[in-house]
Design a protein around this nucleic acid. Structure first.
Lengths: 142, 142
DNA sequence: CTAGGAGCTAGAGCGCTGTCTAGGTCAAGT
DNA sequence: ACTTGACCTAGACAGCGCTCTAGCTCCTAG
């Protein structure tokens, strides 16, 4: 309620205290973090929420640089919602593309797993191809 | 057919020639790349296939180190299919988890996009929250 | 009074994954 | 003969995202 210490925020967000200070230095926090008289940071619930959003951005591959840009837009206040929307949409596309790519990879991997599984279950393994198409991973050397 | 130059392989895989040499140094190629008399690399179609697989591994977040481990297993020849399977399964889990996480992120982002979109369409923007739950991204400063 | 623990700053260091440079060879085209 | 372009090696460098260290201040508990 009355403000959180950096340690508490670290615990709640899963970021390290180092990372929290780093993010602040990098300008990723929407509002200035308040300080106690002794210089210690005091975070609000809003800060934690904002950080949670940053974490979502990060873990979906948004570079810190872009998060900073977004933060800047928000900090500038109303009037640039179009820009924020554009940024978000572009990231949305990026994430969708990532998911699509991962699904493709997952298919290949799942195919290979099934292949090995089958071969092992059958007691012999010569079904060790690289891709559905062809003959790779040649089971013998030479 | 009769072997590909590094440049051709680069073009076909999308990797740079630098990356190709780097991957080789790092031991990511299942078989030794042959050389012409003058020392130039000669790749086979199998190599390209293997590289394509490596690319799938990489782009789904498998570290080079793990690819190397897998490559080593394959190079050792038959007898360790169980190990290969374990490695692949573990990566499969990892990729599934990644996809799940990205979907979560995508939900949040999509929610925000919808929010801004709506506000902009309505001609005013005060729907600028951080998360579905609360009041973040406070539209005014101070 | 003292020790521990949490916090502070500034800045160095690191792991990963390439990328690029320097300096050279070789083969073909003009 | 000369230039161009693809290739070679070894190794330096780069970008990103933290993480850690050094050296310090506080506060609290024993």
């Amino acid at each position: 309620m009355g403000g959180l210490s950096i340690g508490q925020v670290a615990e709640r967000t899963g970021l390290s205290v180092h990372a929290l200070r780093f993010y602040e230095r990098e300008g990723l926090l929407a509002d200035q973090v308040r300080r106690e008289s002794n210089g210690r940071r005091v975070y609000t619930e809003d800060d934690v929420e904002w950080l949670d959003m940053c974490i979502k951005f990060r873990s979906s591959g948004m570079p810190l640089d872009t998060i900073r840009k977004y933060t800047d837009l928000v900090r500038q206040g109303p009037g640039n919602e179009g820009d924020r929307l554009a940024l978000l949409k572009s990231h949305q596309d990026y994430v969708s593309a990532q998911i699509a790519e991962l699904n493709e990879c997952l298919n290949v991997i799942t195919w290979k797993v099934g292949c090995y599984q089958e071969a092992l279950d059958a007691g012999q393994a010569d079904c060790l191809w690289t891709a559905p198409s062809a003959h790779g991973e040649k089971s013998e050397a030479s």
